[in-house]
Design a protein around this nucleic acid. Structure first.
Lengths: 221, 221
DNA sequence: ATCCCTGTCAAACGTATGTTTCAAACAACC
DNA sequence: GGTTGTTTGAAACATACGTTTGACAGGGAT
């Protein structure tokens, strides 16, 4: 009963600290002291630190995956295949629409996602892969249909470029926003960064590949 | 005398292990035992673990920056401003031409760069920024001239996307190449991946931004 | 030969980590 | 009201970490 109280306090503190400093750099003592609970509570409720990390993710990702899957399946059922922009739009709006407890829950979520991909936490990647492989494969199928002109090799690498741009940017958002604000006096909410990403990715993925020398190609504007 | 021997062995082992597991996840004992030197050697030669991390970077980045700066300055002296493709070409070829000790030194380098950006190692970011700010600013100026149509905010974020796509992809090359080879029976050398990158980035950076798109606009918290 | 500087080595230091233990407090049920 | 199962609490556990120490070896230089 009072159980959920402690569990939630731990999850709240953990997700904040993880996003701030990374996984290895955050100790259970920092988490429990910020949460105002006993140190042993983590191991009692979650079993281990790794399990806590996965639980933090599950709380974020499960709602997102549910929303995303619905939309992807709706898109897959349509008569005409989705355009690339529509496909990317589905993902971004799904992310944005995940209900978040805190006011900047989204940026924390994205930062965690970036960390997960970047930081070589074997257990986390394995967990995410086997947990959400169905959605990932569906997305890949739709992407294939949306970019019929690409060769498989081109498509493979451009997916990596896309993932890289996204994960990398988002995972360093907090630091970057600070720089941008200092230099340009502007502040960019995560929602807008995601919006900025779509045209970039869309154009990049559909770019004409250069065969021959790179300098001869002209850009259409 | 035999000094350089030990220092190099440490740097070699450290750069490999850092790239493999990350900075916090790699202990000095792992490094020194892989290098076959005494544990105390790190603190003797470098002073601290953080200083070792910075030294690993310096060994990679210094030659690259030298090559890059020469070419950028040459490009800046020309009468007509560089095209975006030419600018990106300068960077990619500079990266490729960095002499590397090992056969996949390039992918290690990029992986480290990605980690530096992502892992919130304050000292490292500070070190890199103040060490190579001149080259970075020059590049930014040339990029600004190459993309006069972008707003500053757009340009800022697209640079991040570009960095992300590059660092992320190249850094996980070894793993990704394996996947690609298994699934498509093709093998892609790093140099070709970089070639694949140029059109992607070029098109992405110059993409028309979607503004006034009411689709996913949202009230800020 | 003596001194000194440099580099190596094994051992220890102090601290922080994740995890376990076990008694006490609590709530729920018969 | 006593019993049971669940949750907290303070303390200890074992281990791993980065760093420091002091002894020792090898050459050059004086």
């Amino acid at each position: 009963m009072a159980q959920s109280e402690t569990v939630d306090r731990i999850l709240d503190a953990a997700e904040l600290l993880f996003a701030e400093r990374g996984f290895s750099e955050t100790s259970l003592r920092q988490i429990t002291s910020k949460a105002g609970v006993n140190l042993a509570a983590v191991n009692y409720h979650f079993g281990s630190k790794n399990a806590l990390i996965q639980a933090v993710f599950a709380r974020f990702i499960n709602p997102f995956t549910r929303i995303l899957r619905e939309r992807l399946e709706a898109g897959a059922k349509a008569d005409t295949p989705l355009t690339l922009e529509a496909l990317l739009g589905i993902i971004t709006t799904s992310i944005i629409q995940v209900p978040s407890r805190t006011h900047n829950g989204l940026s924390i979520f994205m930062r965690l996602l970036g960390l997960a991909y970047t930081q070589s936490q074997g257990h986390l990647r394995k967990y995410l892969e086997q947990q959400y492989s169905a959605e990932f494969r569906l997305f890949m199928r739709l992407l294939r249909e949306a970019t019929p002109d690409l060769t498989p090799v081109e498509r493979f690498w451009r997916i990596q470029f896309m993932l890289g741009a996204t994960a990398f940017t988002i995972s360093s958002t907090s630091a970057l926003s600070g720089i941008l604000e200092k230099e340009l006096g502007v502040e960019t909410p995560v929602e807008q960064i995601i919006q900025e990403l779509v045209p970039f990715l869309s154009a990049g993925i559909q770019a004409r590949s250069l065969q021959g020398d790179p300098l001869a190609r002209r850009v259409s504007k």
